[in-house]
Simulated assay, not measured.
Amino acid sequence: MKKLLNTLFVTSEDAYLTLDGENVVVNREKQVTARFPLHALAGIISFSYAGASPALMGACAKRAVSLSFCTPRGRFLARTCGVSNGNVLLRRTQYRTADDPPQACRIARMMVFGKIYNARWSIERTCRDHAMRVDTETLKAASAKLKALLPQVQAETDSGSLRGLEGAGAAIYFDVFDRLILNHKDVFSFTGRSRRPPLDPCNALLSFAYSLLANDCAAALEAVGLDSYVGFLHTDRPGRQSLAADLMEELRPCFADRFVLSAVNLGRFSAKDFEVQENGAVYLSENARKTFLQGWQEKKREEIRHPYLEEKLSWGMVPYAQALLLARYLRGDLDDYPPFLWK
């Protein structure tokens, strides 16, 4: 299993990254502000418009260090890639499977099953832990509806209908999401999912979490030799890492959403941590992004027991574990792709 190394988050909008020997150097206004040993990093995510030097990009590609660029608001822009060292036979199998609708749907339905299952258990966990503070009857009703979708997902053989079931599950889940928020409802009330741009503080947090999770999933898929741009649930689109979008679906409710809910309920953010643009878009401030990223990195180091592998591993390793399981299925080592099922 890949070792969980540090991820370097560069949050200053004017930071330019360069390479000095074996070190990543952060420069601002032509002055060196920090340096980090490259060998200690698993990835670098830059939220700066200034970019990075070609030498650093080459060094990251050579050492398999993921180097990703996002806007200061968290929207993914690009990742650097070197010469692919993935198993060519594995990728050829991935492409053939993606072009075979029944086979693609077989993998996609397991991912959708995992998403709906985990959404249900996120609701159930809130009912269990905070029964005296929430509308248990409404939440239990939503949980029952999600449970009823699971056998339909398992039986579905058409990709279009499967996406319809996924959308129905998401609608049920987000319809009660506001009831999972226990504190600071004056700031973080949730009336519906909005993105590109997010229109309220809660959606700003969710969008930022999803950007980070998508990047982690893309890095995991590339690390095991898969093509993160060719998916089974999400169709091909120029510039979209469709397989990363597939893989993150089952991890949204149990990792990204629960992280945001914990941060809000524990009071880690307040109204002053958000900036409202003229078009109504709401984004985290620079200091808030730093707080978010620090908590995200801490969350990734928390240990859990993987439900399929039955081994202890950190949350940060879950995307790698799922990417490995997907690769094993495509190679024929497993009868089905086992989604991550959380409780």
Results as ranks from 00 to 15, higher is better:
Glu311Ala: 12
Glu13Met: 15
Asn287Ala: 15
Arg196Gln: 07
Ser314Gln: 14
Ser122Lys: 15
Ser46Gly: 09
Ile44Asn: 09
Leu5Trp: 00
Ile44Pro: 03
Phe255Cys: 13
Gly231His: 02
Ala148Gly: 10
Trp315Thr: 05
Ala323Lys: 01
Val318Arg: 00
Pro339Arg: 08
Cys127Asp: 10
Ser262His: 11
Val153Leu: 01
Ser159Lys: 13
Arg92Tyr: 11
Pro319Val: 06
Glu156Gln: 13
Ser211Leu: 08
Asn27Thr: 15
Ala220Lys: 07
Ala168Ser: 10
Glu137Asn: 09
Ser314Ala: 15
Trp315Lys: 15
Phe190Met: 10
Asn85Gln: 14
Leu182Lys: 00
Ile181Ala: 00
Val318Leu: 01
Asp200Glu: 02
Gly231Val: 06
Lys2Gly: 04
Ser48Tyr: 11
Ala171Val: 00
Asp236Lys: 14
Gly164His: 04
Arg163Met: 14
Trp342Thr: 04
Leu251Ile: 03
Ala142Gln: 02
Glu250Ser: 07
Arg106Glu: 13
Ser285Thr: 15
Thr138His: 12
Asn203Thr: 00
Phe292Ala: 02
Val88Phe: 15
Gly239Trp: 04
Leu4Ala: 11
Thr157Asn: 13
Pro197His: 01
Ile45Asp: 09
Val65Gln: 00
Pro197Val: 08
Phe174Cys: 03
Ile123Ala: 06
Ala223Phe: 12
Val32Gln: 11
Leu341Trp: 00
Ser84Thr: 13
Asn118Tyr: 10
Pro338Lys: 07
Glu249His: 08
Ala15Ser: 13
Ser285Met: 05
Pro339Trp: 09
Arg179His: 06
Met57Asn: 06
Ala104Val: 09
Ala50Ile: 05
Glu278Pro: 07
Asp236Cys: 11
Ala119Gln: 15
Phe47Asn: 11
Gly192Val: 00
Arg109Phe: 07
Ile45Pro: 02
Ala256Val: 11
Gly164Pro: 07
Arg28Met: 14
Leu150Phe: 02
Cys60Tyr: 09
Gln294Cys: 12
Lys185Gln: 08
Glu137Gly: 14
Leu56Cys: 03
Glu156Trp: 03
Ile107Asp: 03
Asp336Met: 11
Lys272Ser: 15
Gly169Asn: 06
Ser46Met: 10
Pro253Asp: 01
Ala55Arg: 14
Met248His: 05
Tyr95Ile: 09
Leu212Phe: 08
Pro339Val: 05
Arg196His: 10
Gly295Arg: 12
Ile172Gln: 05
Gly231Ile: 01
Ile172Glu: 03
Arg289His: 03
Tyr229Asn: 06
Leu67His: 10
Leu90Met: 01
Leu180Glu: 00
Pro198Asn: 02
Gly164Asp: 06
Pro197Thr: 00
Ala98Asp: 01
Phe69Asp: 06
Tyr16Asp: 09
Ala15Lys: 08
Asp135Cys: 04
Pro102Lys: 06
Leu38Arg: 02
Phe274Val: 08
Phe269Glu: 08
Gln152Tyr: 01
Leu4His: 11
Phe292Thr: 01
Leu233Ala: 02
Leu221Met: 06
Ile181His: 01
Pro37Val: 07
Leu213Glu: 07
Ile304Gln: 04
Val318Phe: 00
Ala218Phe: 10
Ala223Trp: 11
